[in-house]
């Protein structure tokens, strides 16, 4: 028992600097700290949800330098110096909902909401790459995220609605 305690205390800590939603955070973490846990426990941003913790469900998806990434499959130390966007970073500066969030609200794209943060980040990046998706492309965009409540139909509708909102906000 004492030996175990000593080992826990002796675990090496690493200083890591992350930019999360535009703000800089310094954390001291063991190498085994998953980024999903650092965001939730060390930084206190609990919007990122952890479902399966092995890459399958997509609830923990964040944007790493803009690219959708599973935060449960990334060590916090590995992310040192990089830019992270979580669901909290998708709201507008005045605190109102961003276009993808608004579309989920309009289309009833969530029920329990557990999966929603991962869908919002994934779709935000997806629409940046393809601002005007067909319904099939919208379905493909969310193919890596699981939802146990909605049956997906309203999430697909929300992707298409978010594309419309995006087009209204930025007339070509």
């Amino acid at each position: 028992m004492t030996e175990q305690t000593t080992e826990a205390v002796a675990e090496e800590l690493h200083d890591v600097r992350l930019t999360v939603n535009g703000a800089s955070y310094d954390v001291r973490v063991p190498a085994r700290r998953l980024l999903s846990d650092a965001l939730r426990h060390d930084i206190g941003l609990t919007g990122t949800h952890v479902g399966c913790e092995h890459g399958v469900c997509g609830a923990c998806t964040i944007l790493l330098d803009g690219a959708p990434t599973r935060s449960c499959l990334l060590l916090t130390v590995s992310a040192d110096g990089r830019e992270v966007t979580t669901v909290e970073g998708l709201t507008e500066r005045d605190g109102s909902l961003g276009p993808v969030q608004q579309a989920f609200k309009d289309c009833h794209g969530l029920q329990c909401g557990f999966c929603t943060p991962g869908f919002l980040t994934t779709i935000t990046a997806g629409l940046r790459d393809n601002p005007d998706p067909s319904e099939a492309e919208a379905r493909d965009m969310i193919g890596g995220n699981l939802c146990r409540c909605t049956g997906y139909a309203n999430i697909v509708a929300a992707v298409l609605r978010a594309a419309e909102l995006g087009a209204e906000a930025e007339p070509a």
Partner: peptide, 12 residues
């Protein structure tokens, strides 16, 4: 550790 997409689940 490369992309971690197979190794990190095995660690967890």
């Amino acid at each position: 550790l490369a992309g971690g997409q197979s190794l990190v689940p095995l660690l967890s």
